[in-house]
Simulated scan of single mutants.
Amino acid sequence: MSIKQRGKVSAKRAVERFFFLLPLVPGVLLIFSLMMQLLPDQPLQRFFGHDSALDALVGGLVGSLAMGQVFVGYLAGGELVRNGIGLATATALIVSWATVGLTFLPYEMRAYGNRFAIARNLLAFVSTLIIAYATALLLDLM
């Protein structure tokens, strides 16, 4: 199969996947909006506190443990920011949800080897924190 044919097949699969997931977005938004309305702001503010360094670390850990479709992380991060949680924290949650996979670590270790899987996850987590702070800093400057 040529590169051009593989590109067409990949593009077709991507479009199919997009339309397959599209109906889930309103339901996820509804659930997160409902959860944010039912949860009072005080516990969220207390849980994340006001120290952005520690908050981003906690957001990164929560995202690292999260399972499910990555787009849910985007929606969760947006809802957290809308409810007063810092941008660095939400960014750390989203990026770690997409890149760090602690729940899949045993599988990764078996498939790719212990050293590679652990190194990949550690580098992804450190990168998550750097990206979170850089994003928050750049958007504050704008």
Rank of each mutant, 00 (worst) to 15 (best):
G77K: 03
I94R: 00
F19E: 09
S64P: 01
P40G: 15
L93T: 04
Y107D: 14
A90L: 07
G77S: 10
M67K: 10
R82M: 09
G27T: 15
L34R: 10
A88N: 03
G84R: 12
F32K: 10
L54K: 13
G60C: 04
S10V: 08
G84Y: 06
G84P: 07
S64F: 00
M35L: 15
G84A: 12
L29T: 11
L80C: 09
L87P: 00
S52G: 02
G84S: 11
M35A: 15
A56W: 02
E79L: 07
T99N: 07
L39C: 14
G101R: 06
G63H: 00
G101F: 06
L80E: 03
S10L: 14
V9S: 06
R46C: 04
T103W: 08
G59Q: 01
S33V: 08
T99E: 03
A76N: 02
A76K: 01
L24I: 12
A90R: 02
V58D: 00
A98L: 07
V100E: 00
G84H: 09
F18V: 14
G73H: 02
L38M: 14
L65N: 02
F19N: 10
T91F: 00
E79M: 10
G84N: 09
Y74G: 09
L61R: 03
F47W: 08
L54H: 09
T99H: 05
L22V: 15
F48D: 01
S33P: 03
W97E: 01
